[in-house]
Simulated scan of single mutants.
Amino acid sequence: MRRFLLLTPVALLLAVIVVVLATEYVVARPSHRTKDVAYVAATAPDFDKERHLLDVYAPKKTAPNAAGYPVVLFIHGGSWTSGNKDFYSFVGRRLAKQGMVAVVINYRLAPAVHVPEQAADCARALAWTVANIKQYGGDPARVFVMGHSAGGGLAALLTTDDELLARNGLPQNPVRGAIMDDPAGLDMYSYLKELKYEGDAKYKVPFGNDPAVWKEMSPIYKIKPNLPPFIFYIGGETYPSISGSSGRFRDRLKATGQAPPYTIIPGRHHVPMVLQLYWQHNIIYQGLLKFVGA
């Protein structure tokens, strides 16, 4: 009996792994993944062979119209110091299964670079997407950006900062909308000035010590009339800094005439806000499908 009890957790773990792998197989069947595509030329002086890469997930079926499928560019989080696109293949597969072309990107991380370089990487990935996504079945005229945590802040910069895009090959902003999944970094200027919480000084590793940079990399100060639409999903138990800055961001959008959908998910902490994207029918995908017109 004792031996059985010792084996049971192992058997349970194996059963869970089998279920997960079977689910991923079923989800992957309707989609095709193109892995490790370089979005920066290998001849560029700052080319990073590991971080300047993206994956494309496309439905195997031909798009129902000649324009192609809507496109969602997903930016991972990780406090601007960690994270990898390979952790988020489940996001790409589920987006593709539901009638979108997904682009899941890497970008360089701190301390090797700072947030301005990371934002430039994301802009270059967006420029690659607009120029190349047609060959994967995507519609370059319907490109949306999505991010969780630090990735949400970077996605917001792509949506609000036309000068950032112009410096990186996009004279016109192609973003048609932004999906914010518990975004961090919307107002790092106020956050780093206050240093309100224990351990906050660690965020000076990616943002540096210059308040002018903090403000330049805070999309809340770039809000203006006629921005692409935003949609927000905020965890009911997320960090106060995220809920607070997201609420202020929403209020500033309202002042310009945009009333972004803003959903607080009760009981949900910060990390589960992205983990829930494993399940195809969760509330974020429900809203996202309508938002992008999939």
Results as ranks from 00 to 15, higher is better:
Gly153Trp: 02
Ser218Trp: 02
Glu117Phe: 05
Gln280Asn: 09
His76Glu: 12
Met180Tyr: 04
Arg167Pro: 00
Leu109Val: 00
Ala125Asp: 14
Gly68Ile: 04
Gly267Val: 07
Tyr39Phe: 15
Ser241Met: 04
Arg2Gln: 15
Ile283Thr: 14
Ala120Trp: 11
Cys122Thr: 12
Arg248Gln: 15
Ile265Ser: 06
Ala131Gly: 08
Pro225Ala: 14
Phe207Gln: 11
Val115Ala: 07
Pro64Ile: 00
Tyr107Asn: 05
Lys35Glu: 15
Pro111Gln: 14
Asp162Gly: 12
Glu24Gln: 13
Pro140Glu: 10
Pro229Met: 13
Phe207Ala: 02
Asn226Phe: 07
Pro266Phe: 03
Ala42Leu: 06
Ser243Ile: 01
Asn84Thr: 02
Ala38Glu: 13
Leu7Asp: 01
Leu253Phe: 00
Ser241Asn: 03
Ala22Gly: 14
Pro229Asn: 15
Pro174Leu: 14
Lys254Thr: 13
Tyr221Trp: 09
Gly244Glu: 13
Thr43Phe: 04
Pro219Asp: 13
Ala58Leu: 02
Leu164Lys: 05
Val103Glu: 05
Gln286Arg: 14
Val10Asn: 09
Val175Ala: 00
Phe232Pro: 05
Tyr25Gln: 14
Leu186Val: 00
Leu186Gln: 12
Pro266Lys: 04
Tyr107Val: 11
Gln280Cys: 05
Ala11Phe: 13
Arg124Leu: 10
Leu5Thr: 10
Leu21Asn: 12
Val292Thr: 13
Arg3Cys: 10
Asp139Ile: 02
Lys202Trp: 11
Tyr69Gln: 01
Ile17His: 00
Arg142Glu: 11
Leu21Thr: 08
Asp181Met: 08
Ile223Cys: 08
Asn168Pro: 05
Phe144Tyr: 15
Gly177Glu: 04
Val10Thr: 10
Glu24Thr: 11
Asp161Lys: 09
Phe249Ser: 02
Lys254Phe: 08
Ile283Trp: 06
Leu165Phe: 04
Pro272Met: 10
Thr81Leu: 04
Arg252Pro: 01
Leu165Gln: 05
Leu165Lys: 04
Pro140Leu: 07
Ala127Thr: 11
Phe291Val: 08
Ala110Gln: 08
Tyr221Cys: 06
Met100His: 03
Leu126Phe: 06
His114Val: 01
Gly138Pro: 01
Gly83Asn: 09
Thr238Ile: 08
Ser218Pro: 05
Val292Phe: 02
Tyr203Ser: 01
Arg142Lys: 14
Leu275Thr: 15
Tyr88Met: 06
Gly99Gln: 04
Asp162Glu: 08
Asn168Lys: 12
Val274Gln: 02
Phe207Pro: 07
Phe47Trp: 02
Arg250Pro: 02
Val104Ala: 11
Ala166Leu: 09
Ala102Ser: 06
Ile284Ala: 01
Arg176Thr: 00
Ala294Trp: 03
Tyr203Asn: 05
Val10Phe: 09
Gly99Leu: 05
Phe47Tyr: 15
Ile264Trp: 03
Arg3His: 12
Val104Pro: 12
His269Pro: 00
Gly138Gln: 03
Arg142Thr: 00
Gly138Asn: 03
Phe207Met: 12
Ser149Thr: 03
